[in-house]
């Protein structure tokens, strides 16, 4: 069983569109019936918008604990406010309350409250979903607005996808990863067999790409790079590919800027299914051929 994670240095590079196209190409090619999909970009869980899956099950996801002050026991001494380093204790008319968004869950206030008026409570942070898409089972999640802890949720989504792949002997787990380099990304890449980084030929593209590649190197995950919207700045695309060569990272192709991608998004279809002959679709098929060859080689 192989785990492929699709990543990007920042949002909006077309990562999810590419993942949806991969799901389509994998499930309609030699990996048919072998794919399990995971949307690990839980802050912007968009893969389902392109795959329109049928929901099979939903369950609540408890996030970190946050403090709660029992107003009946609180004597408004204000000690909690002085020990909190996250400005999560707010005073209102001489009463104190916890701002659950600012609370980091450290429980310092709990340990210091002389009245024992503060306790920790897990907060509903979001939901885990299990769905069936045209291209295979999909594990995804939704965070409630303003919730953190997406690293933990990412780990759970991946764990579910991996578990189903192992149980049903499916060969490929395709993960739509979160953008950036923070906790959710780390959670999405650790233990993956291969990462495909979607780069953009923008001014910050090379910089964003480098940070993502540093993260992958740090966690010893093999990386491949594809350049999306490459024709918007061919010289910058050349530079990205040259930088990759210097780092010993293989590049697997260029996808052109193509309005067919946006049309497919609105239609709720992968572009390779919606307009198979569009320039972007042709390029994506080539990219997928190269990525899947590497995946098989890594077997």
């Amino acid at each position: 069983m192989k785990q492929l994670v699709v990543l990007s240095g920042k949002g909006g590079t077309g990562k999810t569109c590419l993942t949806a196209a991969f799901a389509h190409l994998a499930a309609t090619g030699p990996w048919a019936e072998q794919v399990v999909l995971a949307d690990a970009d839980v802050d912007a869980a968009n893969l389902e918008l392109m795959l329109r899956p049928r929901l099979l099950a939903a369950e609540e996801f408890q996030g970190g604990k946050v403090a709660r002050i029992d107003p009946a026991a609180c004597t408004a001494c204000g000690i909690c406010e002085t020990v909190c380093r996250f400005e999560a204790i707010v005073a209102h008319d001489g009463r104190f309350a916890v701002d659950p968004i600012a609370c980091e869950g450290c429980a310092a206030c709990v340990h210091h409250c002389p009245e024992g008026a503060i306790s920790m409570h897990p907060e509903l942070a979001g939901h885990l979903y299990h769905s069936e898409s045209r291209y295979g089972p999909l594990h995804h999640a939704g965070l409630l607005p303003g919730q953190e802890n997406s690293g933990k949720l990412v780990a759970l989504v991946r764990q579910r996808a991996r578990g189903q792949a192992l149980a049903e002997r499916r060969e490929l787990v395709l993960v739509d990863g979160p953008p950036g380099i923070g906790c959710p990304v780390i959670s999405a890449v650790t233990g993956a067999d291969l990462a495909l980084v979607v780069a953009e030929p923008s001014v910050s593209g090379a910089h964003d790409l480098n940070r993502t590649l540093d993260t992958l190197a740090h966690f010893r995950v093999r990386a491949l790079v594809a350049v999306n919207r490459a024709d918007l700045r061919p010289a910058a695309s050349d530079e990205i590919e040259a930088r990759c060569r210097e780092r010993g990272v293989a590049t697997v192709g260029r996808v052109p800027f193509d309005l067919a991608v946006a049309r497919a998004m609105v239609a709720g279809e992968p572009v390779t299914a919606n307009e198979p002959e569009a320039a972007a679709s042709r390029a994506l098929r080539e990219v997928w051929e190269r990525v899947s060859a590497v995946l098989r080689g890594a077997a």
Binding site: G151, A155, T190, T215, H218, F219, R220
Partner: peptide, 9 residues
Amino acid sequence: THAGHHGSA
């Protein structure tokens, strides 16, 4: 055997 989930350097 691997770097930590939280990326301790």
